[in-house]
C-alpha cells in the first residue's frame, strides 16, 4: 500500500517539480552546449564547402562520415582526448544536484528559491561525493565478481560461443539487478544523510543497506512501476527517429527540440523517482 501511495504521489510531485527540472536541465544544457559549440565549429569548417557531407542528411553514409572523420582526424582526436575530465565533471554535477533535489522533494509545497536550491546542493555536496565514491567502489567489486567467472570460462576448451553469450547475458542481467539495488542503497543513504544532517557516510550506507533489504520487495515493485515510463519514452523516441528523415533546417530544428524534450523528461523522471522513494521513506518512518 505504501508503495502504491508513493508511486501515485510521485506523479503530482513530478508535475509540481517543473521548475526544478528546468533548472537542472538548463545546467546540463549549458555544459552540453559548451562542448558542442567547438564540435559544431570544427564540423562546419571541415564540411560547409564540400558537397559530400550533404549525403549525411538523408541517411547515414559511411563513406561521407568516414572521409570526414579521417580528413579532420587529428582535430577530432584532440577534441575527444580531452573528454575524460568532462566525464568527471558530469559525475560531480550529478552528485551536486542531489542536495537541492532532496531539499525540494522533502518540502514540495514550499516555494522553490534558486538560492536555497543552490545552498542545499553545496551543503551536502562533499558528503554525497564520498557516498558516490564508496558506491562506485562497491559497483566495481560487484562487477568484478559477476564477470570474473564468464571470463575464466571463455579461456576453457570446449566452451561454446552460445555458452559464453548466455553466461555474459545472465551476468549482465544479474549486474543490472545489483546496479539497481546498489543505487537504491545510495538513494536511501542520501535521504538519511540529509535528514540526520551528519557526515557518517559509511554508517549511513550500512543503515540504508539494511533498510533496502528489509523493504526489497516493495522497493523493487515501485521501481518496476516507475521504469515503465522511461521505457515508453525511449520506444517513442526510437520510433520517431527511425521513421523520420531529417534533411531540412526545419526538421533539424524540430529534431533538436524533440531531443531536448526527451532530456527534460528524463530529468523530470529522475526527480519523480527520488520523490517516490522519499515518500516511501517517510511513510515507513511514520509507520515506525
Amino acid at each position: 500500500m505504501k508503495a502504491l501511495k508513493s508511486y501515485i504521489y510521485s506523479f503530482s510531485l513530478s508535475w509540481n517539480s517543473k521548475k526544478i527540472s528546468s533548472i537542472i536541465y538548463l545546467a546540463y544544457f549549458c555544459i552540453a552546449l559548451l562542448l558542442t559549440i567547438p564540435f559544431y565549429k570544427l564540423f562546419v569548417s571541415i564540411s560547409e564547402h564540400s558537397l559530400l557531407p550533404a549525403n549525411l542528411l538523408q541517411d547515414f553514409d559511411a563513406t561521407a562520415f568516414g572521409d570526414l572523420i579521417r580528413d579532420s582526424g587529428k582535430a577530432f582526436q584532440v577534441y575527444f582526448k580531452g573528454f575524460l575530465p568532462w566525464v568527471i565533471v558530469f559525475w560531480l554535477m550529478g552528485t551536486l544536484f542531489y542536495g537541492g533535489i532532496i531539499a525540494w522533494i522533502s518540502n514540495p509545497n514550499g516555494t522553490l528559491r534558486f538560492r536555497l536550491f543552490l545552498d542545499k546542493c553545496t551543503q551536502y555536496f562533499w558528503r554525497f561525493v564520498r557516498l558516490a565514491f564508496y558506491m562506485l567502489v562497491i559497483q566495481a567489486i560487484v562487477a568484478l565478481l559477476i564477470y570474473v567467472l564468464p571470463v575464466i570460462m571463455i579461456g576453457k576448451e570446449g566452451v561454446t560461443d552460445q555458452y559464453i553469450v548466455r553466461t555474459i547475458s545472465i551476468g549482465i542481467l544479474i549486474h543490472l539487478v545489483f546496479l539497481i539495488t546498489i543505487r537504491l542503497i545510495a538513494d536511501f543513504a542520501r535521504f538519511g544523510l540529509y535528514q540526520k544532517n551528519h557526515h557518517k557516510v559509511l554508517k549511513e550506507i550500512w543503515i540504508s543497506a539494511k533498510y533496502v533489504f528489509r523493504h526489497l520487495g516493495s522497493l523493487w515493485m515501485i521501481y518496476m512501476m516507475w521504469v515503465i515510463m522511461p521505457m515508453v519514452l525511449v520506444v517513442i523516441f526510437y520510433i520517431l527517429r527511425t521513421t523520420m528523415t531529417i534533411d531540412t533546417t526545419v526538421l533539424i530544428v524540430g529534431l533538436f527540440v524533440l531531443q531536448q524534450i526527451f532530456i527534460w523528461l528524463k530529468i523530470s523522471l529522475r526527480i519523480q523517482k527520488q520523490g517516490m522513494y522519499y515518500k516511501y521513506y517517510i511513510l515507513c518512518q511514520v509507520e515506525d
Binding site: 555544459i31 558542442t36 562546419v44 560547409e48 550529478g94
Partner: peptide
C-alpha cells in the same frame, strides 16, 4: 556554404553529451 550537416550532427552530438551526463 551548407551548414545543415554540421547542424544535424552538432545536435546529435549535443544529445549524446546530454545522455552521457544522465
Amino acid at each position: 556554404a551548407n551548414k545543415k550537416p554540421a547542424l544535424k550532427y552538432g545536435s546529435k552530438f549535443m544529445f549524446l553529451i546530454q545522455n552521457l551526463m544522465q
